[in-house]
Design a protein around this nucleic acid. Structure first.
Lengths: 152, 152
DNA sequence: TCACCAAATGCAACTGCCTTGCATTTGCAT
DNA sequence: ATGCAAATGCAAGGCAGTTGCATTTGGTGA
């Protein structure tokens, strides 16, 4: 299968072995629309491919993160770790507080701030993280009165 | 002591009892320059005031958070919960990756994004969180080559 | 192709953060 | 003062994630 050779090449480039599990996890992440928890990935892997241990999933994801192949973050509401493929593109996420859907966006408002801060207080921005909460199209109709999320 | 009566009033306004522990935690949060973990608060409380149980600290902080008296967030690197007093002011922080100094700013770039996202994908923003990394004036001279922080 | 070795994996036990159940204590209204 | 709901302490438990160790596997060199 030529898909696996693609992963193999990618992994070799990072100086780590290409294994059945690693290829499967890369493939799964590639197919995932949203960042996934380790457990979500674990369950899916057990369903569709061979047996795998949860610790292997964690170890693999950590290895990938250390090589910058995947990006690790923490879910806002429960602090669980989320993993997604690193496409090396700059993006942010919208979290719907209604259905917990995560939507990726390319818009980034940091540009002008960068210059403002440089002028105002001589601070050089090298990175940032922006999390946005709100209600998606589907959840607006069920919108609840303002809650804790409004303070974030 | 009249400081406690200030806390008592605050707590009564939220419809919850004023207790020794609650007053102490409010006071401690008021004195804290940065968001604290539950354990940091716990340790400090044990040192300077009477005995308190860790579960009480957690329960108190959760209660305060549910009343919006404190803001709860998750530390970026290890996902631990952080608690800080809610001053109801909108602000963000600059984290200097050189000296780990935390600088508060009032600038917020979310305004235009709000309208953009509403038009583009029908998403209603209710809140957001922005963390900015970089080098402060003092650390610029020692600036290191780009690191992990640049991906955040 | 084979044999070897470091790296990867499975399994089970364990850690750390946080939560919960329950008996006791405390704040506050009456 | 007294009674009751709310708060607390204590101990046990839950859950995400980690680790130690024996076994298996991928890749390299003969």
């Amino acid at each position: 299968m030529e898909e696996n050779s693609k992963y193999k090449e990618l992994l070799n480039r990072e100086g780590i072995k290409s294994t059945r599990h690693r290829n499967a996890i890369l493939k799964l992440l590639e197919e995932s629309e949203f960042p996934q928890t380790a457990e979500q990935l674990y369950i899916t892997l057990r369903e569709k491919t061979a047996s795998i241990d949860l610790s292997t999933v964690y170890r693999t994801l950590d290895t990938f993160a250390s090589k910058s192949l995947v990006l690790k973050s923490n879910r806002v509401d429960d602090g669980k770790a989320l993993y997604e493929l690193n496409h090396n593109e700059h993006k942010h996420h919208l979290l719907c507080v209604g259905c917990h859907k995560l939507i990726s966006i390319e818009d980034c408002p940091i540009g002008e701030l960068k210059q403002t801060l440089k002028n105002k207080i001589d601070f050089d921005i090298t990175g940032h993280k922006l999390e946005i909460y709100g209600y998606c199209h589907d959840c607006k109709k069920y919108k609840l009165p303002p809650s804790d999320h409004d303070n974030l």
